[in-house]
Write a protein that binds this DNA or RNA. Structure first.
Lengths: 333, 333
DNA sequence: TATTTAAATGAAAGCGCTTTCATAAAATGC
DNA sequence: GCATTTTATGAAAGCGCTTTCATTTAAATA
């Protein structure tokens, strides 16, 4: 494992010069540069990131910190993040299961703080204030699917309400009037926004909002299953269900089938997120797609900018979801 | 961001002593230790990992390096790895898409080599010799789903052949005699072993092996779909299909449905892996479960041991897969 | 040609730690 | 009670880099 000293010896220059050609931080005579490059190649030299980090205080590492998120959602995210970061010669470290604020804090203190130039945080089950206090303990952060007014340039989100509206509009266009909604866990911005979109669409089409058609899920398959059962048990018939995510849609689909309801024959179903397996369900699931790839790229881009000390980034506009029409919606009459 | 100097000043001891209480590396008088801890607490001190790493040459970081793997498979793996590593105060960095040997090599050189105490490598699309040459460029490695005779204590695998046999036995027990097989990509140990198990089961029950009932897939959904189509197009009827992974099973299921075959009414189907969504398909997929969790834990454990310079680890026995019976297999008279 | 300016390089300090080595104080053995 | 071991601590070197500062060399200007 060659060091800068060996390179400098072989190239017959000082280590300062080697450092300069590595970092391209001051003019070096062309012939010298060549010699240094040769030496580096010969020795298979790779700078020691720890030595570099120690003096520059930069790690070239970015952390992804997640709360309790389903694999189907976070995997593509990790994938796109890592791809973007790698091309910028950054590294991605992950911390997946931080279900409570305390765990989160511990992660920040022990992992993130000292070894990352920036964090990408998916604060699903955290309150805004908890995020704020985390922010004080750690490096600059970019937030996924959460908006903090003080960080307009660092919050990456989609227009959840719009997504719901796409879903519900679609159902309405297909003739549905009795549209149920399975929401996410309460006190969560995504839940609120997606529900708001649902309500808005109904209103726009003069369809009354009925509490009995809205049941609470928790973003899990089991939660969706239960919610659908409760819906069927209540005596408010509906011809369509909008589930606030695909997990719950999958659970609901199962519940419906088990209760002898055909999808979409008896009840149409729309999800949200377009996870990997949405197209594999049967019927394949009509859903609202989050552009996870693009969001990952953007997150990486901003994280890198932050890591370079850039601040006052331009405010971000939410990403626009799209409706992916598959087989789980039928038209009525 | 307090340093060891500030702690030592506040506690009125030398930095050597502080270091000793941090690392518990030499006896320190109880009262002194207390003072140091107090000072650390007061200052919110966290040791600088880069400074530590620079002198100890240990990073407390472990890299997971993957080839082209589907999200459904790698997500739970990442999850279990990260969980194990975190409890040992290690860090996980990931590098997901290394499809060629050259990319892999680049990853090793630029990322893994200088910043990881160990690598966990999933060498799906790499040859044994390519792995060997990677081994020379990087830190100690643990291999997932691959066996290298020179690393008996560092290869974590399942008994693929046994898994296939569970699957095929099950089909045979249900009365099936014409059992097709969709294999993975060729020249891959997993493909070979799983196919071998299939053949062995047939043989044990005196069922002739028929080339026409074996079609090649590539471990993807699309590959499974195509394979199933080819199977149906060939004029060799079968009552059951064993797909070498769940992705392909999902693809096959779709193909069967589109061709008017009911699953399991007309054709039974068994997969392999038990990915997250296997139970969500309809019919839910009977499949062979890999204990990914346990494998992740084991991988983490070995990686940590390696990072501590341990060598000559005891040879590992393959994990045993289990059959998960769901709805995609019917019995024939 | 003499002088100023820019380019090219090296010496040395220092980033925050661990780890020898040396030394002082306390505990042990005879 | 003195020599010896053990315990407790500090001073200082050094890990591999970057970066300031000083110095030399080459180019540009008058």
């Amino acid at each position: 494992m060659a060091t800068i000293n060996e390179v400098s010896a072989l190239a017959k220059v000082s280590i300062s010069t080697v450092s300069r050609v590595i970092n391209n931080t001051a003019p070096v005579k062309e012939s010298t540069r060549e010699r240094v490059f040769d030496a580096m190649r010969q020795l298979g030299y790779q700078p020691n990131l720890f030595a570099q980090g120690l003096v520059t205080n930069r790690t070239r590492n970015i952390s992804l910190v997640l709360t309790d998120l389903t694999s189907a959602y976070f995997a593509p995210l990790i994938k796109s993040l890592e791809r973007s970061l790698r091309s910028a010669r950054y590294n991605l470290t992950v911390s997946i299961e931080n279900t409570t604020y305390d765990e989160m804090r511990d992660t920040f203190l022990s992992q993130v703080n000292r070894r990352s130039d920036a964090v990408i945080l998916f604060p699903h089950c955290l309150s805004d204030d908890e995020i704020r206090s985390l922010r004080e303990e750690g490096p600059p952060m970019v937030l996924l699917n959460r908006y903090l007014p003080e960080l307009p340039g660092q919050c990456i989100q989609i227009d959840n309400a719009l997504g719901s509206r796409f879903a519900v509009e679609h159902l309405i266009q297909q003739g549905h009037r009795h549209i149920a909604c399975i929401t996410g866990i309460s006190n969560n911005p995504e839940t609120t926004e997606r529900l708001a979109g649902y309500r808005k669409s109904l209103k726009q089409h003069g369809i009354p909002y009925q509490t009995k058609l809205v049941v609470e899920g928790d973003f899990t398959v089991a939660g969706g299953y239960d919610a659908a059962c409760r819906l069927l048990a209540g005596n408010k018939p509906c011809s369509a269900i909008f589930a606030s995510n695909d997990q719950m849609a999958a659970g609901a689909m199962k519940a419906l089938r088990e209760n002898g309801k055909r999808v979409p024959g008896d009840i149409s179903l729309v999800g949200f997120d377009d996870v990997e397996y949405a197209g594999l369900l049967s019927p394949s699931l009509t859903t609202v797609r989050q552009p996870v790839e693009e969001m990952g790229h953007k997150a990486a881009e901003i994280a890198i900018a932050l890591s370079q000390g850039k601040t006052d980034l331009p405010a971000l506009t939410p990403f626009t979801p799209t409706l992916v029409i598959r087989e789980s919606v039928a038209s009525v009459e």
